[in-house]
C-alpha cells in the first residue's frame, strides 16, 4: 500500500503547498503597507470584482480568442509544412536555412512589422502568436517523422500502404508524441505572446488591462490581472495534458509494456 500512500501524500503536498504560500503572502502583505504590494485580501477582492464576471466578455474572451486562433493556425501550418519536410531529405535540406533564419528572429521584433502590415486590430496579434508557436511544433514534427523506425517504414512499403493511408495511419500517429511535445511548448509561448501583443496597440484584452492598470496606478487591479494570467496558464496546461493523455494513451501503454519486459 506504500504506492497508494505515496500518491496520497503527493496529492496533499500539491494542494497544501500552494495554500501555504498564499497564506504566507497574505500574512506578509497584510502588515507590509506597501503601495506596490497591496494586501492579498485586497487583490483577491479586486480579482472577484474585476474578473467575476464583469470583464470576461470585454477582455478575457477576446484574449482567449486571439490565443486560440493564433495557436490553431500555428498547429495547422506547422504540421502541414513539417510532413513534407520530414518525409523528404531534399526538401528538408533546401528549407532548413529558411526555417533556421525565421525561427531565430526574436518574436517581439515582429510586432512593429505586424502593426504596419496587418494593422492594429486582432490580425497582427493572431499573426504574432501564430508565428512564434509554429517553430517548436514544426521542428518536432520533422524530428518525429525522420525518427520513424526503419522497420516500420519497410513494413508500410512491403504492404503497399501509400498516400493518405500512410499519412493518416502511419506517419502522423508515429510522429504524434513528438508533435504533442512541441504543441505543449508552443502553448506557453502562445500565452506569453498574447500578453505582449496586447500590451502594444490594443484596446482590450488581459495584457492591455494589466498595462492600463499599472499606468493608472491601480495596483491591486494590475495584480489581479497577473494572477488571472498565471491561473490561465495553469489551466491551459492542465487541459492540454488531459487531451494528450487521451490521444496518446497507446504511447503510454506501449512504453510501459516495453519497460516491463
Amino acid at each position: 500500500m506504500s504506492g497508494r500512500r505515496r500518491r496520497f501524500v503527493g496529492l496533499g503536498l500539491e494542494i497544501l503547498v500552494p495554500i501555504a504560500v498564499l497564506a504566507l503572502w497574505a500574512l506578509w502583505s497584510a502588515g507590509a503597507d506597501s503601495f506596490y504590494f497591496p494586501p492579498l485580501t485586497e487583490i483577491l477582492d479586486t480579482f472577484a470584482e474585476t474578473w467575476l464576471f464583469e470583464r470576461v466578455g470585454s477582455d478575457v474572451l477576446p484574449s482567449l480568442a486571439r490565443l486560440g486562433v493564433g495557436y490553431a493556425i500555428a498547429v495547422a501550418i506547422a504540421v502541414a509544412v513539417g510532413v513534407p519536410l520530414g518525409l523528404s531529405p531534399a526538401v528538408r535540406r533546401g528549407a532548413s536555412p529558411i526555417v533556421e533564419f525565421l525561427r531565430a528572429i526574436p518574436p517581439p521584433a515582429l510586432i512593429p512589422f505586424g502593426i504596419v502590415v496587418i494593422g492594429v486590430g486582432d490580425g497582427y496579434k493572431v499573426f504574432t502568436i501564430a508565428f512564434v508557436c509554429i517553430w517548436p511544433i514544426l521542428l518536432n514534427t520533422i524530428d518525429g517523422i525522420t525518427g520513424i523506425d526503419p522497420t516500420m517504414n519497410d513494413t508500410t512499403k512491403v504492404y503497399g500502404v501509400r498516400g493518405v493511408d500512410r499519412l493518416r495511419k502511419v506517419v502522423l500517429p508515429a510522429a504524434s508524441p513528438q508533435i504533442f511535445a512541441g504543441m505543449r511548448t508552443s502553448l506557453s509561448l502562445a500565452l506569453i505572446l498574447m500578453v505582449i501583443s496586447e500590451m502594444v496597440a490594443s484596446s482590450n484584452g488581459i495584457g492591455f488591462f494589466v498595462l492600463e492598470s499599472q499606468r493608472s496606478f491601480a495596483i491591486p487591479e494590475m495584480w489581479s490581472g497577473i494572477l488571472l494570467l498565471g491561473l490561465l496558464g495553469y489551466l491551459l496546461n492542465a487541459a492540454f495534458l488531459l487531451v494528450e493523455r487521451r490521444v496518446l494513451a497507446w504511447h503510454r501503454g506501449a512504453r510501459a509494456s516495453a519497460e516491463g519486459t
Binding site: 519497410d154 504492404y159 500502404v161 493511408d165 502511419v170 508515429a174 501503454g253 506501449a254
Partner: peptide, 18 residues
Amino acid sequence: SLLPWLSVRGNVALPLRH
C-alpha cells in the same frame, strides 16, 4: 513492425485498405 496505435484488427486491416 506492428503499429502500437492500432488494435490487432487495425494492424491486420491496414494493408487491405488500398
